[in-house]
Amino acid sequence: MNKEKTNTGKLLEVKDLRVSFFTPAGEVKAVGGISYDLNYGEVMGIVGESGSGKSVEAYSIMGLLQSPGKVIGGSITCDGEDVISKSKEEMSDFRGKKVSMIFQNPMTCLNPVYTIGNQLVEALRAHNKTISKAEAEKKAMEMLELVGINNIEKRMKQYPHEFSGGMRQRVMIAMGLICSPKLLIADEPTTALDVTIQAQILELMKDIQRKTNMGIIFITHNLGVVAEICDKVSVMYAGKIVEQGTVEDIFYRPSHPYTHGLLSSMPRVDAESYERLVPIEGSPVDMLNPPDGCPFAPRCKQCMQVCLNKMPPYVELGGDHRSACWLRVKEQIDNKEEQTNE
């Protein structure tokens, strides 16, 4: 099947999304105003370290935020529907049907006391009340076949503990796709798997994406995975998107020091043998009392006075590439001055 763009335009539009957790110690601004678009059939990677707010952001699209977490501002529009204003009921119809999600740890994400078949059929019948049990089972088996599971008849009757980690993640993917959603959110789907299985799962997801033309948001802290599967990338740090662009932009023209840091802390096949990996020094900011300036400033090698006082604006760098860093602002100023001087 070829990539057929039946639907073009925006599948998902997130505007200035803000999510806070109201803990006894104070408000934690887990997501502090992020915006991005995703077109139909596009794969976007969200990269960032633990606690950068990438999962929280995904959960708010799904309406899965648990108290004390709360969306406090911004909008999410998915396939033309406003997600945030939906009621609890509407939300549970929306989940699984329009958007579905697969999680990091396939070992704990399947209910241990029900068979795989039962859990798959349940997902289908939650959104399709009229479908008969036999039909649902047939569909479930088709999905299992799609995700590359053998011996399906027998597998349907087995319990999660009888599956390996990779197989469970395949089941999770089958479950996510069973209602043919428009958007799939994959929250670190390969992190808990070992490397060879990781590659298989990525291959599978790419394959399915090509076949079904759905949009995927791929959350990960592994840049290698991003390069493998994504069309565009958002880099998140401390609840903000610090750089956004196509995979080429991010990998070949990184413009934010944090992206630089991420790239140079990643092992490369083409690196010279004596080249050392460079870690990003320091630790992330305290999200309870975020500083006024750029949150990355204290760990930044090129930190300037202004970085400590003011949040940098986004600087457009051509195409979809933009970055929030005072260095880029300075560059532009310098460029302008040179032009005027000439």
Binding site: V285, D286, L288, N289, P291, G293, A297, P298, Q302, C303, M304, Q305, V306, C307, L308, N309, W326, K330
Partner: peptide
């Protein structure tokens, strides 16, 4: 504003709990 920040400044930027 575009002068480099010192290490001390960077350190005092975050109050460690």
């Amino acid at each position: 504003d575009f002068a480099s920040a010192t290490e001390e400044q960077k350190e005092s930027f975050i109050q460690d709990r």
